[in-house]
Design a protein around this nucleic acid. Structure first.
Lengths: 252, 252
DNA sequence: CGGCAGGTTGAGCGGATTCAAATACAGTGG
DNA sequence: CCACTGTATTTGAATCCGCTCAACCTGCCG
């Protein structure tokens, strides 16, 4: 059982056994637990530590002067929370746990040392960052030009692909325990309207969402409803892995 | 007169004279001109060349199945169009010229060679990428939680800061020759509504926009109206430069 | 002069919001 | 086992921001 960080990066690059062991060491050395609603990284912080989500669910967010909140990204196992730590002084947003979340803490210096040793990691980090950029751009299209129905459908389909990358899907189901308030904050809707739209998706038999588990009933139809085109996730370089499950690349 | 790329990166890092000369060489070696509406980089392309905007105005965009367009970012002199070229197979969006635009073409291999020579450039590229991420996140807040008035005000104030970084402002004026259609596509509004909102901004004496020149009449009030907090641009590490003009950092 | 792109304006519509109240549900303590 | 509590979800009605679609204007250029 590989750790989700390595697993995600192997969507793009191939590590040697030695590299994999080094990554496992980094992940195992120091970990932290976070309760729901707690900040994993506070806005404005700079700890010198890199955070990788190992289990649970977290989000990047910004608080607004009027008390509102905008969730800019969901972070699932395998995701790096703060690539900016290498270069920037402070975080320009916060990262908070949504469910109980375990993170690995990696000293920035250790990471830099490893980056000098192995170019695969550098490439994988660069790939991860470029993919994050792609995801953000897609979200801008969502909020700018797609209505609530398509927007939520798009988010759900993207999450299906991302969870499959780290082999946390069970068929077309996966644990995604967000509240409708979270969903509203992520999509730029009000909770009331997110609720109504969710009901339409359920009525159309595209998804089921209850008990914190999201089930995609018809991936092909959801993909179509979401106007989803997965190029922005850049899974086209996935190399063959001895994976028992389905491959994320098949969804894009 | 330094080139705008170097100038922008020097907001963050300090180059030696030798590094500056090498950068100038790279910029001068090969350039290209682009007419308005022409693609500088097509969606799906992969040329092995990096593009840096030297003059003019361009945008990142995606076309939608219904014929709509979403502009995800404006690219001004000094901006790198395609950092993804180092690692990804294809572009997941297009870059098009808005006005006649001159770009420098840098072979990815030359760039990589220079990256090995000097760590300053690597840091500056990483900083640029992290800043791009920050800008995208801020745009998500714009479209998700701010109304048309604040959204446009925010865009204009951000552009003021960015233009000042590369010393292309004349006081609080700068050339920003976008059509209202472009503005609408960038903010997720319709041209009609962008027009009405623009008129409110003019009526409130916050800005003037005509003849392709945007003048910020009252930076402090515009900043307030835009709910602008410039942390996400990460100008806090700006080192002292012998700049004759105003400093972008003063605006954030 | 005609054509065209960009800008402006108006009327009517609708998706999403606001605000409120009702309902479901899990956890907790009596 | 059942009230009690707090949180999440659901529903309703009124309202509004921004959209649609259309017409009209302006300046520029061939």
């Amino acid at each position: 059982m590989r750790n989700p960080w390595t697993m995600k990066m192997e969507q793009f690059t191939a590590f040697s056994d030695m590299e994999r062991r080094r990554l496992d060491e980094l992940i195992r050395a120091r970990q932290d637990q976070h309760a729901p609603k707690d900040d994993i990284i506070a806005d404005g912080a700079h700890s010198g530590l890199c955070h990788v989500v190992l289990s649970g669910l977290a989000c990047r967010y910004k608080l607004l002067p009027d008390g509102g909140r905008q969730i800019m990204a969901f972070l699932i196992p395998g995701d790096l929370c703060d690539a900016e730590i290498f270069i920037l002084k402070v975080m320009d947003h916060g990262v908070a746990a949504i469910t109980p979340t375990v993170t690995a803490l990696i000293p920035a210096d250790d990471m830099k040392a490893l980056l000098r040793e192995t170019s695969s990691l550098g490439e994988a980090l660069w790939w991860g960052t470029m993919t994050d950029l792609g995801v953000l751009r897609e979200r801008i299209v969502d909020e700018g030009r797609r209505d609530a129905y398509v927007r939520i459908a798009h988010l759900f389909y993207e999450m299906l692909v991302r969870y499959r990358m780290v082999e946390l899907t069970d068929g077309d189901s996966f644990e995604f325990p967000i509240t409708q308030t979270d969903l509203a904050d992520a999509t730029g809707l009000t909770p009331a309207h997110a609720n109504r739209t969710l009901q339409k998706l359920r009525a159309d038999r595209l998804i089921e969402l209850s008990g914190g588990v999201l089930t995609v009933l018809d991936p092909a139809r959801l993909k179509q409803a979401a106007h989803f085109n997965g190029e922005y996730l850049h899974l086209d370089r996935v190399h063959d892995r001895a994976s028992v499950g389905q491959r994320a690349g098949d969804l894009v």
